[in-house]
Structure formats: C-alpha cells, structure tokens
Design a binder for these strands. Structure first.
Lengths: 341, 341
DNA sequence: AATCATCTGGAAAGCGCTTTCCGATCCGCG
DNA sequence: CGCGGATCGGAAAGCGCTTTCCAGATGATT
C-alpha cells in the first residue's frame, strides 16, 4: 500500500528501502536478462509493494529509447466503423501490454500529416492509420512523413493497400466484396443502380465503386448515376435527396458506399415517401451493427472490423508478418433487397 | 526536411547545427519564460527545420515531471455511448494539445483498478473514467487507487456522481431524465411497464430505474416487472425473450435502460411477432444515432454524450471548475411510443 | 593448490530534455 | 565617466530510469 507522500516513490526510494543498489532494484522490478538472487528479489519486491511503486513510463521510455505505445489514427472515433476497428486495436494492445493513443484526423490529409508529425515525438512502437486515405495532393507529404517515422523505428501500418518497404498494410478487399455484392443483387433481378459514393480519389470509395460497377455490369445491370459526397450519414441523406429530386424509378437499387451512408439515405428516402424493399432497394457496405437493427434489415458486405483492428495491431508489433492473409468479406443479403419479381 | 539518418535528431544536434547552447535551443523550441534574441531564435528554428526535429515527449515528460497525456477509460470503445464520449474527449484534448490514451475496462472493476494502477506509470495530466462504476466490492480498491493517483498530481474525473476531494465529476441527471421520460409516457396513456435493467448496484442503471419508477408511478402507472442484465444489445434481446416467455400484455411499455438495450429488445420482440408502436411500446435512454434510424423511431432521452466527454476533459485540465453546470437532458418522443387511445 | 570461467551486485555513465545559476554585456543615469 | 540593474547565453545539475562495466566471490578444472 502506498504511503501518504505527495510525490510518487522512485526506484531510488525502493532501492534505499530494500537496502540494495539502483541497478538491482531495476533488474528485479522492470525485467532484465540478468538474474537476481532470491533473497534480494524478495526484499525489493516487498519494498516496492510497501511503498506502492509504479515505474515512471516516461523515464523508462527515455532510458530505453522506445516507448510502449501504439498511436492510432482514425477519421472519427464516433463513427461505428472506426470505433470497431479501435476496439480490435485496443484488445491487441492490451494483450501485448501496450498503451494506445488515439488521434482523430477528420479525414483531412493535412491535419493527418500534422498529427503524424506530432506523434513522432512519442517515438511510438507503432502507428496505425485507419483514417481512410485519399490519393490526393497532400498525401505525398504524409507518405514522406510516414517514411521518416518508419526510419526512426516506428512500425507503420495502414488500412488499405499501399504496403511498401516502410508501411505494412491490412487490406480489405473492397473491390472484391463490392463485386460480389453487385453480382448477388444482379442475380436477384436488379438492373439499374444509383451509387452514393465519396469523392473521387478516396481509395475506399473508388475501390468499392469499381467493384460494384464490375459486378453489376457483368450481371447485366447498369449504373445509372454516381453521386459524390463523403462517408457520413448526412452525406447519405443529402445525396439521396439529390437523387430523389432527379427522380428514382421504382425497382432501382441504391448503393451506399458504406452502411452509414446507406442508412442516411434510408431516412431520406423514407421521409420522401418511398418504401425500401418494395419500391426501392438499398444496400450498403461494412455491416455495422445498426445495419441489422434498421427496418428493413440492410443488405451489405460484412467486414470483420474488430478483426481488422486486431490484425493491424499485430502487424505493428510482430516481427515476422504475412502480408497476404485474407480477411474474408461476406455478402449479407437482408430485406432491403428482396428478390425482384 | 529530414536527413536520411536512421536516428532522430536530438536537441543537442540542433544546438550544434545552430551553433548555440542546449539551453538556448530548448528555450527557442520548447517554450520558456525566457526570451531569446531574434538572431539566435532564427538560427535555431532554421536548424530544427533543416534537420526535421521533433521533441522527444518522453524525455520532456521526465524532465518536466509531468506528461501531456489524458488517460481515458471506457467500458467498450465499440459501444456508441462510449465512442461518442471519447469523441468529445478527443476534441478537447486536441484543442489543448494533449494526447489521449484509451483503455477498455469491460466493466470489470478489478480490471479497472489494475488499469488505473498501470496508468499511474504514465503520470498523466488527467484521468477520465467513463466506464460506469458500480457500488460494489472492488470499488473501494478503485477509490483508493484513484485517491493515490490524484495525490500524485493527476486530476481524476468521473462520469456520474461521486465527486469528493480527489475526484471531479461530470454528472448526467439520469434520475431526472428517466423521471421526465416516464412522466411523458404516462401522459401518453401507458399504464404498465417492464424495465430491462442492468445489475443492481450499477449506478447508472439504478438511477434510471429509480427515476423511471418515480415518474411512472406518479403518472398513475405501474412497474410490472424488472429484469436484470447488463448494458449490451444482447442483454436487451435476452431479457426481452424472458419477458416474452412470461407473456407481455398488449399496450405494455418496455423500457430499456439504454438505447442499446432497447434496440436489442426491439429485435427480439419483433422476431417474436410483436409489433412496436401498435402492439407494444418501447423506450430507451441516451439517444444514440441509431435510435433515430430504427423503425419505428425510438423514444428516448437525449444525453449530449459528445458534450459530456468534452466537459470531462475540461474538468480534467481547467484550474477552476464549476461542479454544478447542467447538461440539459431532453425527452425525445418518437413513434415507438405513440399516444395510446 | 593454483588457475580460470562464471556468476551477480554495485558504481556510474548515459538517455534527451529542462531549468537553475552564473557571468558577460549592455543600457541609463547621476 | 563610473556604477547599478537588466538582459540574455551557456555550463551544468538534475529528472527517473537502463545498462555497461568492473570487481569480488564462487565453483570447476587441472
């Protein structure tokens, strides 16, 4: 138990209390290759317990030259997509005894670059970029910054493609998943689709759009329209309103680039008096928990987001690492896209 | 721009490059009360830019004796409740130039105690406990641990009551909110209710239950049954199944202790063939985004969760602090509890 | 019995930074 | 023209820890 001192006990205090040297105390309490005689070990441990010692992590980090933290970047932690990824990261970090710091980028590449730069100061063990990246101006700086950070000893892991020498990556087969989804829906009889996408150049959106197009066209369908916004619920609402204003023929399939977008669209379509399932069909991507709870249930592609986060963490800390392991997306057909007859 | 060295430039390097002393470099780059002549300042800044210097935060923390981090504890980051709180914390931390580390407790008091203990090693500026606490054995240890941490200089902030000398707190008026909700529903004509609660002793659940009971009884209603589980969606499903097995009379109001629970119940009730809105009524608490997206829309009490997180952060870092400021919960009536006639 | 390898504790250097203290320089003023 | 007080750079001590290096002790080997 701790004494009532107002300042935390240091290793020095423990050493004095136990009547041993600083070196010995360190070896006992904070791990070392060296062995310490049982009698000494006990004395040190007792002293540490008595004084309520906890190692100062910052001091440890400066002395060791590396800190036990993983820096996680997400676009928005309140977004269920990122929240689930974060949960996976947190689980893995906990297993490995690492701390995770979290930064929100708001999908702004400049901000992201700035934050990565700032986080360099932590000399983290690893950096996980879950914020979806764009192939855009500004990204080069990020890439350079990441390379610099990687050279300094932090392992960098990104979601999505782009593994190079500096960056490991956990890839979600957005294109393949979207292709499979579109194929299944074409199979169900849908022939025209409207896509509510994010801006061109945003990797995740581009891939899903490409895959969807491939699959849908191969199945005999036609993409009637592509509307551009972002990954938010609001974007889903707004794009749906735009589409409504232009007119949506009954039997059309609306594909939201993510579940969040699709659910935004759901609201807008419904409040315009359109009925999902009978009049229009709707599909999303990700299979966030809400997709199961809305009515009608939302057809989507299940992405094992928690697992993605966990794998990203492993990629950040494991020495050897197999790039290719597959994540297994899965098309989930629900009532928002009934068989069309 | 950075050179291609494999080791990060230190302040020493900058000082050498600029031809000034370590002290001067430190004063220029990392803030100080002392002024430095313009000519020196420029040289140092140029050198820092040339070498791509970023201060080593751990070293800074050891030297200063305090680190620029806030430790946030949540039960489960994937839960929208906590995700939103975390977003508020992240926003505030960003404004203040602080890093936030996140730990998930899984609502286990022992684990929470262990984690708080571990986090002491960070010597964080503040600790925010969002994980809902129970009045339970195990909590005393937590309390002691928190007091110790507070004495060591970290400000401790808890969600929910319990402010004492060591702990500031952001309080959500769960009881009042639930009372208002129950009153409004009694007003709408509901007379019997089943409550899907968490375990007894869990503060948030107890308060909501108490408030709901007060309000409902005052309005002429009767609590027919209280079922105990936890705050998860699964708990909602299971408890609803239990209730169904025992029989739920038409016109009964089912109150989930949180929206997540209510939404779990929604699924179970629906798949048992019960219709929400006409046959049964359903209400929750929190107003998570999903509550608006389900059909019928879920009646609930809006808790400004992001704001809660933000305030918790301010409480952690502001010198002066007004305990009482009110958060303004708001009853949100939606179609899951239509006027009963 | 002498030699050597091995083991283990402690002294001390060092991690990268902050901050105190000292001393040199400059200015204003009588 | 000389003096006291600002002003500002630099040397060095320190933050709490790790780790190298040294030295004494022990046991094995010949």
């Amino acid at each position: 138990m701790s004494t009532e001192s107002t300042t935390a006990p240091t290793l020095q205090d423990i050493a004095r209390e136990a009547g041993v040297s600083l070196a010995t105390a360190s070896r006992v309490l904070n791990g070392s290759t060296r062995t310490v005689a049982e009698s000494y070990r006990e004395r040190v441990e007792a002293a540490a317990a008595r004084l309520g010692y906890t190692a100062n992590l910052s001091a440890q980090a400066t002395a060791r030259g590396t800190s036990a933290v993983i820096a996680l970047f997400v676009a928005d932690i309140a977004d269920p997509y990122f929240a689930q990824v974060a949960a996976g990261v947190a689980r893995g970090a906990d297993e490995a005894g690492l701390l995770v710091t979290i930064s929100t980028t708001g999908r702004d590449p400049e901000r992201e670059t700035r934050l990565v730069r700032a986080v360099r100061g932590q000399r983290p063990r690893g950096i996980i970029l879950a914020a979806s990246r764009a192939d855009r101006p500004g990204t080069d700086l990020l890439r350079a910054e990441l390379a610099a950070v990687a050279r300094l000893g932090s392992r960098v892991v990104a979601l999505g493609p782009g593994a190079d020498d500096d960056v490991r990556s956990v890839v979600i087969d957005n294109r393949g998943g979207a292709r499979a989804l579109a194929g299944a829906l074409a199979q169900r009889g849908y022939r025209t689709a409207i896509v509510l996408a994010a801006a061109e150049g945003v990797r995740t959106s581009d891939d899903r759009l490409a895959g969807f197009t491939e699959g849908f066209v191969a199945g005999g369908g036609r993409i009637e329209r592509i509307l551009r916004g972002d990954f938010s619920r609001d974007s889903g609402r707004q794009l749906a309103d735009v589409a409504l204003a232009a007119g949506i023929a009954p039997g059309t399939l609306v594909f939201g680039i993510s579940d969040v977008v699709a659910i935004g669209a759901l609201t807008a379509l419904r409040s315009a008096g359109r009925e999902i399932g009978t009049d229009l069909a709707l599909a999303g991507f990700d299979d966030i928990p809400t997709s199961r709870d809305v009515t009608p249930g939302l057809t989507t592609v299940r992405v094992p987001l928690e697992e993605v986060g966990y794998r990203a963490l492993r990629a950040a800390i494991d020495e050897e690492w197999a790039a290719g392991e597959d994540l297994g997306l899965e098309v989930v057909l629900r009532e928002s896209t009934p068989e069309r007859r």
